[in-house]
Amino acid sequence: MKKTVVRTASLIGVVLAMAPAFALDGQYNFQHPVTHLAEDIFGLHMLMFWICVVIFVAVFGVMFYSVFAHRKSKGAVAATFHESTTVEILWTIVPVVILLGMAWPATKTVLAMKDTSNPEITIKATGYQWKWGYDYMQGEGQGISFLSTLSTPRAQIDQGEWKGDNYLLEVDNEVVVPIGKKVRVLLTAQDVIHAWWVPAFGVKQDAIPGFIRDVWFKAEKEGVFRGNCAELCGKDHGFMPIVVRVVSQQAYTEWVAAKAAPPAAASAPATTDKAAPSAASEPKPAAASAS
């Protein structure tokens, strides 16, 4: 009995706590963050949202009061005032103060996002029209290299076949990373600009051909997290998703072993062999969005 009460109370508490964020992880707001950075970003987002709501209510409360009260049809007689230095200075200063309040946490988050130092694993993601290539460059799993393409069947896209939950968000080779490890992702592209985006990690970074950029994340939860290419990159821009599977350290070690064992004989044993991805993309960027 007592247990039920506690449970109900805590449930109500949880619901209340989550109410401001509408339904978290629902249709209305950001996906549930699984990294500390994504949590910070989520917090910033909600802070901004609430500040905007408060200003919205205040400003439009005044406006709509005026719209209803100061009507000619209600016999309102127009006043003639047309300036007030005090008021005008006040409503310039107050927004500046509010902005300063927003700028502080935002700056801290920017600095945290840029801190890509001391990664435990470094993965290079290369954008191709229209797929992603991954090379594990440093840390456990170094040398693993594969391409990741959309695995949604063409019939689902073109012929209106029944669509699964992960329609357009599923790939043949997922990126696998261990939980709680700092992963640095290096980004570049083969042809045009792409962007590597995993909403739950709070990570989005353009992949620019000829240049290299980096972002980092440290997933705090196991699971499969999905994202999309977020920079228009041509015909199949909407068909090159990103899927990251966060697993336990043990499962990761097993995955690395399985991944490294069989193909080692086939491809050169070198650590950062570029042959596979570049050969695959070399001849022409054929329409290979779905396989």
Binding site: V59, V62, M63, V67, R71, S73, A76
Partner: peptide, 15 residues
């Protein structure tokens, strides 16, 4: 925006 609303404030508005 504040200026517009202050213009409306205590006016004699028609819509």
């Amino acid at each position: 925006v504040f200026n517009w609303i202050a213009t409306m404030w205590r006016g004699s508005m028609t819509f």
